[in-house]
Each structure stands twice: as structure tokens, then as C-alpha cells.
Design a protein around this nucleic acid. Structure first.
Lengths: 331, 331
DNA sequence: TTGTATGCGTTATCAT
DNA sequence: ATGATAACGCATACAA
């Protein structure tokens, strides 16, 4: 059996309450400096480690938060990696641990965590019912700030990409939507944003969706190959994600088109892939990392009752310009 | 306050032990089908959720495992992503949750987790002392199987890459080591393995290490640019990781060399980057995902006392051939 | 088959 | 400043 405060109390001939107080992190407790030192030294000697569960059971605080994503698929890949990194860093900075969780029962089980950061919408029925009123901050793209959530606007991101292409003189443009069967169609706001930018410029873009593969990189390649067969005069491609964009660039090169001289390509999410490609990929940067940080801060504020819920916050998207895009040379 | 088994017992006018038994997952307990149903229905109605902490405190099982990595840096990036995915999938399959942890106190704190999968060596003093005898399975590269660990051999991986290059006729070869200040020099076994393959073929490879940047992709680009300036007759480059390799490919293209016709390039770890590059990157596949799965299985065997420690297991590395490598055209 | 009593390791309350 | 005791929510040995 592990060593407990009983063992320390026994050894020193004092009560467990005294031991508990001596070991407590709250310096303000009434206890003599003398016994505190004795207890601490003895605890160290005996190799005492507090039992986090027992402590949490009585204090009602686990000092752990959950990081929930609807599907496993969301949790792999370079985009979510930015979020995971940010969340864990900020959480540990604030003294909290992170429990990864795709399963709702982790969240609905009582006691294990004090709250959750969810890559989901506040209107996710299942999730909200599993939460049962426990603190939660949502992180998701969306058209406007919602309560208890940190968001960014994919409409805006795609719109900016479109505006940029237009400003660079592009008129023969295609939007690569790819395989949207995953998730609840995150492509829509992007599609709308891009179309809006095009409409404002009097351009009607082509749109390629679907694709036979589970692999978006392959889909990007195949869709682009088909696209160029029908529309060899395309000068710009906007892709729903970086994988599609890289696939498109590969197809273009194989077709003898150079990027960005003949065709500009823009990706989405600004993942690690974007800066490692050749040419490096212009991509819409979504603030998923910053969103994670803010979500954790707010969540822990909620948990520690320092804040009382918040109206939600909207983060800007930005267009990270790299080498895959530029002025069209075809007027 | 949340609803507990007391509340259910009160409502039904029965004892908490009966409620506990009715809700227990062990079907074998002696209890009437009648009351079991009544209890379950009432629990459902009242929205009862078991308190995982209280349960763990008395059973001594938390049904959670920790995933430890020495540094945050190790935890981001596409290589570790494979491990994370595998570990979480297998763990949840076996009914366990995963606690991410870079901090040792998560592990040394009692009770929170039943064991840990560590991306570390069994001889990691700090870690082992923090574990205090609790179940742990280590995942790491290394020269030979060690107790309680799942490993793969980076010497072997690099050796295979070298052998392959030689077999394709390459004699003017460079090994890109890049910036090795991270971690405890994981480059060494790779360097040794590659040198071994070269020595056996009577080839003496060039070696490029260092690099001014934190970004291995940039280092790959810069080192390769320098390399080609001094040794324009290089026909093959083996890089310590995929980032370096992609940087190298970019540099080569900018220097007017084509891959693989003029220069073959091989990366390491077979990350998602490898298949998304153009040309796709031949890369040494390290079985970090498989290692994670096996580690979880063994760990949970240890926890549930179904297995009594194991001597360690060695997984093979393989060379994933893609389009960035081939026969040299320079004899 | 069900109920009673006890314990898991800790903190909180109320004494002293 | 310290100690006795209850309580957190649950599971289980034992009694009925």
C-alpha cells in the first residue's frame, strides 16, 4: 500500500488533520512553522504522494479538464495538433491536466474532470446533455459569436481568399470542395464566403466537389486533373483544406502548369504542410490555437467561479501569403 | 449536488448496497431481476451518473492511463500524432481513458491513473522514480529490446535506407542530420546505421549537420544549398526526418536538379508529409503507431494483472518506397 | 435476495 | 496551534 497521511501522522505521533494542514498548499493556514517543517521532511522521507482522487472527492476539484472532439478523425491531423498543443500548454500553465476524450461517457461520468473544452457547437444536443451543466467552452467555426464559445468565421476566411484572388486579377477561378461527407459539412460557410467574394466581382467560379478517395490529397489531385481537362484556362484554385491544395499543385505541375505563374493556389487552415511545400502554399490561417488558449482560460475562470459565463468571442482569420499565389499573367 | 446512489436508494426505499449491486456491471451478483430493473429505470430517470473518483478510490482502478512524453515538442508534429491516435483508439477499445501528460507530477500523484505509456527509455531515472513501481510500458527507438518496452531500431531503419541507395547505384551520398540539439540526440543511431551501410559498400558519405534555424524544413533547404555548392555531383540524400528531406527537395529543385532523376531523397518517419509532397517522398517507416497499440495492450495486461511484465519487444522498420528515389543515372 | 457497517485517503468543521 | 470526527460517493464483507 502507498504511504498516506495516516502513516505520517503515526510516525510523528500527531493527527492526520495536522499533517493535512502542513502539507496543504495554502500557506495561510494556522500552523507552526516547526511542525510544518517536521511533517514535510517526514513526508519526503517516507515518499508520500497525495492521492489526487481522495482530494478531489472532498474538494470537488479535480484540477483536470477534458478536451472533447466529436470524432477521432478530427483529433489527428495537423490542424487539430495546433489546438492540442495550445490547450495543453495553457492548461498546465494554470495547473490543470488534460484528458483527451472522444467518448461522451468520459464527460458524463462525474468527478473525473472539472470542465471541458469542446471542439463542437453549443447546440450539440448530445454533448450538452452529457455535460449536465458542468462548465464547458466550445471552440468552433461559425458565422457569429455564440455564448460560451470561441469561434472563427470560415465564411470570412474564404471570402478573404476570394477577395485576394480577385484583387490579383483572377477571373477564371475554381473552388475545390473535395469530399465533404466527413463531419457536418464544414465546407458550406467556406463555399458561401468564396462565392460571395466572386459574386461581388462579377465572377462565377467553378466548383469541384466529391472525389473517390478517403484521402483528400488524392482527391485534390484527381479533381484538379479533371478540372483542367475541361477548363484549361483556369488561373486560380481555392481549396477547402491544405491537403486538397497540395494535391492540386501536384496535378498542375504534372500538367505542365507552373504555380503561381500559370495558376495560383490557396489552401485552408495554414497547417504545417503549407510552409513545407514547394512552392510554399498561401493558406487561410484559422486561429484554432489561439481559440484553444482562450477557451482554456475562460473554462478555468468558470470552474473557479472567477467568471460567470461569457458571451462568446470571435477571432479573425487571416490570409497567410506565401509563394503559391500571385498576380495572374492572363489578365 | 449531483444525484448519487443515496438519492436512488431513498426514492426506492432500499439500501445503497442494493442500488450499487443493481448498477454494477458484473451481471453475476446475486440480485433479483425485478429490483435491478426498478433501480436502473429510476437511475435513468433521475439522471444518475456514477462518480468515477469515488469508485476508483475504493476499487483501486481508475480505468485511465497516462501518455507521457518528456517534452511538449515531442507531442506535436505528425510523427507523434500516429502514436497518439493509436494509443487512444486501443485504450478506449479496452475501456480506458487517456490522460496526456508532459508533467511528471501527473504521474507521481497517486490515484489519477492506473499506469502509463511513456515515450521514454526504461532507464529514465526521473520518470522511473516518479512511477514508484506503478505499471509502465516504454516506447522508444533503441538498439535492442529492453524490459517493459516496445521499440524499433533507428540503426536498422537508416541502415536499410543506406542499403537501398547503394543498391540503386548511388555512391555520391550525403546524410542530412540537421539540428540535433533537441532531445538526447536521436540522430546517433540513424547516423551509425547509415554509415554502416555505406562502409559495407565502400562509400564514404558526406554529413551535414547543424543549421541556423529552429525549423528543420529551412535547415534542410539551407544545408542542401550549401552542400550542392561544394559537391554538385551528389546523387542521393538521406535525411534524419521528413522535414529536412522536404527542405532538401525544395533546394534541389531551385538548383535545377530534379528528383529523383538527378538526386534521390529519402526521409525518415514516413509522416503525412511524405505522401503529400511532389514527388512523393520515400521514407523510413517507424512503427510508432503499432508500438503504441502494443504498449497499451501490455500496460493494461499489467494493470489487470493478467500479465507479469514482459521482456520487451522489437518492431521492424521498413522503407516506404515512393517517387523521390530511384536508380542513379550517373553510374 | 437484501441490509448494515466499514473503508478508500483526503479535507473541512468544530472543538479544544 | 492542534485534534477528533464527519463527510465526499461508492463497493464490499458480513450479517440477516
Amino acid at each position: 500500500m502507498r504511504v498516506t497521511i495516516y502513516d505520517i501522522a503515526d510516525r510523528l505521533g500527531i493527527s492526520t488533520s495536522t499533517v493535512s494542514r502542513a502539507l496543504s498548499r495554502k500557506e495561510n493556514s494556522l500552523i507552526s512553522e516547526n511542525t510544518r517543517e517536521r511533517v514535510r521532511r517526514t513526508a519526503e522521507e517516507m515518499g508520500y504522494r497525495p492521492n489526487a482522487l481522495a482530494r478531489a472527492l472532498i474538494t470537488g476539484r479535480t484540477l483536470a479538464i477534458g478536451l472533447y472532439t466529436r470524432s477521432m478523425e478530427e483529433r489527428v491531423g495537423p490542424h487539430f495538433a495546433r489546438m492540442l498543443e495550445a490547450v495543453e500548454l495553457k492548461a498546465s500553465e494554470l495547473g490543470y491536466q488534460v484528458l483527451m476524450s472522444g467518448a461522451l461517457d468520459t464527460i458524463s461520468a462525474e468527478g473525473r474532470i472539472d470542465g471541458v473544452v469542446a471542439l463542437a457547437r453549443p447546440d450539440d444536443e448530445e454533448l450538452v446533455s452529457a455535460l449536465r451543466g458542468r462548465p464547458c467552452v466550445f471552440v468552433m467555426h461559425g458565422p457569429e459569436a455564440e455564448r460560451e464559445s470561441v469561434m472563427w468565421n470560415d465564411f470570412e476566411g474564404a471570402y478573404k481568399a476570394g477577395q485576394y484572388l480577385v484583387s490579383m486579377g483572377h477571373r477564371k477561378v475554381c473552388m475545390l470542395i473535395g469530399n465533404t461527407t466527413h463531419a457536418s459539412n464544414p465546407a458550406f460557410p467556406k463555399a458561401k464566403g468564396f462565392r460571395q467574394a466572386m459574386t461581388e466581382a462579377g465572377v462565377s467560379p467553378q466548383e469541384c466537389l466529391g472525389g473517390p478517395s478517403e484521402d483528400e490529397f488524392e482527391n485534390g489531385y484527381l479533381l484538379t486533373t479533371q478540372l483542367l481537362a475541361h477548363s484549361p484556362d483556369i488561373t486560380a484554385i481555392f481549396a477547402r483544406n491544405d491537403f486538397l491544395a497540395l494535391g492540386a499543385m501536384k496535378a498542375l505541375r504534372h500538367l505542365g502548369k507552373s504555380v503561381p505563374e500559370d495558376v495560383s493556389v490557396i489552401g485552408y487552415n495554414d497547417t504545417v504542410l503549407a510552409k513545407c511545400s514547394d512552392p510554399s502554399l498561401t493558406s487561410v490561417h484559422t486561429p484554432i490555437g489561439e481559440a484553444g488558449v482562450i477557451a482554456v482560460e475562460h473554462l478555468i475562470g468558470l470552474i473557479e467561479r472567477r467568471s460567470e459565463g461569457f458571451p462568446g468571442i470571435m477571432l479573425p482569420t487571416t490570409l497567410t501569403l506565401r509563394d503559391s499565389s500571385g498576380l495572374t499573367h492572363r489578365g
